[in-house]
Simulated scan of single mutants.
Amino acid sequence: MQETKKMNVKNVGSFISNEYFQFLTSNFKNHFPSINNDIYIIPCDLIYQTLQSSDKIAGIRFMYGLRDSLNPNSIHLFLVPCVTPSDNVENWSPLVSKSGYYNHQGDLFTITEVAEMVHNFVGYYAEGVRATYKDATRGIYFGINSLLDILNIPQTYSIQFHLGLKDTTIPAVLQPLDQLGQPIPDIYMDYGGLDPDNIPDDPCIATLAVETLSIEKELNLFRAFRDTSMRDYLYGGMLYEMYYFISPFVTSVIAHHPNKNELLKDLYNNAITPFRILIQNEKHQEALFLLKRVLEDLVNTHQVSYTLA
Rank of each mutant, 00 (worst) to 15 (best):
G192Y: 00
C44D: 12
E216H: 12
M63Y: 05
L77M: 08
L95F: 12
S53I: 05
L51M: 13
Q2K: 14
G237A: 10
T112C: 10
Y125S: 03
T207S: 13
L278Q: 06
I159Q: 00
A206Y: 13
Y124T: 02
S146G: 06
F78P: 01
R223T: 14
Y20M: 04
I57G: 01
S214D: 11
N220M: 07
P200V: 09
K292T: 03
G13K: 00
N37I: 02
N259Y: 15
H257P: 04
D55M: 14
E218F: 15
V96M: 06
Q2Y: 13
L213P: 05
N269T: 10
D55R: 15
K260T: 08
G59R: 00
H257K: 12
L290G: 06
K10C: 07
V173T: 04
I16C: 04
P33E: 08
N270F: 15
T251M: 08
V96I: 13
L165C: 11
I41P: 00
T112P: 04
T169R: 15
V210P: 01
H162P: 03
Q175A: 11
Q280V: 03
D38T: 13
I39F: 09
E90H: 15
A126E: 05
T156W: 02
V129P: 02
Y306K: 05
N152D: 11
T228P: 03
E113M: 07
V304E: 11
S305G: 09
Y240G: 00
S214Q: 10
N37S: 12
V299M: 04
D87W: 09
Y102N: 03
P203F: 11
G236E: 00
K5L: 11
K260W: 10
S74C: 11
L290M: 11
D87V: 02
I39V: 10
A309W: 12
H257Y: 12
L213D: 06
M7G: 02
H76Y: 14
C204K: 10
Y101P: 00
S99F: 12
N71G: 07
K292D: 07
Y102E: 02
Y64Q: 01
A224D: 14
H256C: 09
I277K: 14
P248K: 02
P154C: 07
V89W: 07
H31I: 08
L177P: 08
G139C: 04
S305W: 14
P185R: 09
F62L: 08
C44W: 13
A206P: 11
L221V: 11
D197I: 06
P274N: 09
L295I: 12
K265C: 06
T84M: 13
H119W: 06
D227Q: 15
F78N: 00
S99N: 15
D195T: 05
F32V: 06
T25Q: 06
L77Y: 03
M1G: 14
V83M: 05
G236P: 00
T212I: 07
P171V: 02
Y125D: 01
F222E: 01
Q22C: 12
F121C: 01
S14A: 15
E241D: 13
G13E: 00
N281F: 15
P274D: 06
